[in-house]
Design a protein around this nucleic acid. Structure first.
Lengths: 357, 357
DNA sequence: CTGTTAGCGCCTTCAC
DNA sequence: GTGAAGGCGCTAACAG
């Protein structure tokens, strides 16, 4: 029976010849412990390789210095970028991070787990948590909690979102300025707010430019490269195919580029493609896109959460991250297009992403 | 004083008119509880939105069904890929995953934390854990633990590693078969075993081909794109610059490609570049590389760990993942080079990565 | 079948 | 300055 595989505070106390409470005091740098006692205990702790049990500690004192990050899955570009930002923030703010994930990106399955995870970590391990793309509108907890890019509008808890509509408008304005009039759109998952907002940006900018909306140019995707690929195939097979494609995210855009290449088209010479998100693959692939500073969303959310934990008031319950157009090599002025207002295309302007924070 | 923000097992017991142990039994589907009692308790649990505290549970019963993943940082390609594999595995094996990260990729700082985290999670929250690129040779714990790509050889615990030497040989053989004889090398962090093994593969293949080792062609990098960039600049500035560069990882290789482009060289026409890892960016950038199936390393490590947890014997204490050459568009036969043994370069063979598992 | 009794490892009064 | 007791929320023996 080896239930003593782990060294506890008792072992330290015994080895140091003091009581457990003294060790506890040393652990938490409390009050005045006699300097010599302090040193002795510290040394024993080091020698025994003791580390206090997170479980036990968090049960007794409601302060663990770790925050939780709940995500439907890791490994997708969006969640990766969020994680990077959170990672930077917890490092700056001297917190620890525990990422809780179910493993299944399957949404239906996930929604059940979401509340469960929140309750699970609630009052347990973490001082507060960040939920990425939550499906639930209200969590039954009074716990410090911040949402990133929630599905629906009007959530009851503090949230960080991107300015999806403005970003989409910027992308479209750029394509229009290059002379494109027939622009295809590859959408995201319709149940996501971000996808809805980007589609609306596409539609609104066409309306502003007095270009009638052509339904056959609007494809419903799901933010995946595979769907981007097949949606692009459909667009390119039209009798009057588009000269440019605006994909609602970079993965779709990269899929679209593959489809174009397979169809014998050259990007950007024969087809312009623009994406959304600015994931690392976009940089490597030379994709023009809209940076929504995903990682900054993670950073800001973490800052908000820590403020919440420390009882400081929040400036706002809804933080909007501005977007920014990143011009690379996947778009070109349409041949025989109109004069371009002040756009020097020979020296392609290159805006480098700046990681904030 | 709102210390009862969270609903406990006592609240459930009181509300259901039973004792706490009965609730506990229901929670764990133990023994025979009277069907009506079971139902009543279940209903109360649902109504109160109760979820058991992970902390308390894990303190009492040594089984939480969650495994821990300890990484120096998230957000780097290597750790991202590992995470993907682990994620798939825990999904298949019905476990939960908690990722523990310090946030700082700084190695010196990290080494201190590593043992601490292991002790921290040890006997706490997780049933076992996976440590990525551990710096410590032996952990003071008898806890289920699997290492991925440990720094040093001869670690005392089960490990998963890539066949770095063989992979490097494969990359070099490919470049040699294309007629290159002056091949630059951009190394990784010298303190990492992977970097050492890849460098050795570079050297050994040159020796096999009877090409003398030119010291000025070997640059010491650090696996970052930035270092890849500056190392490549040095190589290209040589009086007799290389016709090909073998970078010890993809990020370095992508950095090298940028350097080449800035120097006015075209890849692959003027310079061939080959990487190592096969990260997503490599695909997007058309980089020829060596796939070491990083995500599969995560998958296998998880399988090993679960076996360990369940007390099953391990087939082997050291699992080697084979590598594989992925030919894309960043290498070309040297002009005026020797006849190529059976290599048809006009139709560039494209091996797609297959995600295993 | 269900309630009572002990702790798991730790922190926090309260005495000394 | 330090030790002794009590309890955080939960499970695992025991009794009944």
């Amino acid at each position: 029976m080896r239930r003593r595989a782990t060294v506890t505070i008792h072992d330290v106390a015994k080895a140091a010849g003091v009581s457990v409470s003294t060790v506890s005091r040393v652990l938490n740098d409390k009050d005045d412990v006699a300097p010599e006692t302090y040193e002795k205990v510290r040394r024993v702790i080091r020698e025994l390789g003791y580390a206090s049990s997170l479980a036990a500690k968090s049960m007794r004192s409601r302060k663990t210095n770790v925050i939780g990050l709940i995500m439907p899955s890791v490994g997708e570009p969006f969640t990766i970028e969020v994680t990077k930002g959170v990672n930077r923030a917890i490092n700056d703010l001297k917190y620890h991070l525990i990422i809780y994930t179910g493993g299944s990106p399957n949404l239906g399955h996930w929604a059940d787990h979401e509340q469960h995870f929140v309750s699970l970590l609630n009052g347990s391990i973490t001082d507060g948590m960040i939920v990425v793309v939550p499906t639930i509108k209200t969590f039954s907890t009074t716990y410090p909690l911040v949402a990133i890019d929630p599905h629906k509008e009007g959530t009851s808890f503090p949230s960080v979102i991107a300015t999806n509509h403005a970003g989409a408008m910027a992308a479209m304005e750029y394509l229009l300025s290059l002379g494109h009039r027939r622009i295809g759109f590859i959408g995201g998952r319709p149940e996501l707010q971000s996808a809805v907002r980007r589609l609306k940006g596409y539609q609104d900018s066409l309306r502003q430019a007095d270009i009638p909306l052509a339904l056959e140019l609007v494809q419903v995707g799901d933010y995946s490269a595979q769907m981007g690929f097949s949606c692009a195939q459909k667009l390119l097979a039209l009798d009057d195919p588009p000269t440019a494609i605006f994909a609602a995210n970079d993965q779709s855009a990269l899929g679209a580029i593959k489809a174009a290449k397979e169809a014998g088209l050259r990007v950007p010479d024969d087809l312009s493609v623009i994406g959304f998100d600015n994931i690392p693959e976009a940089d490597a692939g030379g994709l023009t896109t809209v940076d929504q500073f995903i990682s900054q969303m993670g950073y800001v959310a973490t800052e908000m959460l820590v403020n919440l934990i420390q009882g400081k008031p929040l400036e706002s319950n809804l933080y909007k991250i501005p977007t920014r157009l990143i011009v690379r090599d996947s778009c070109r002025a349409i041949s025989g297009g109109p004069a371009l207002a002040g756009l020097d295309l020979s020296s392609r302007e290159r805006i480098e992403t700046q990681t904030p924070g």
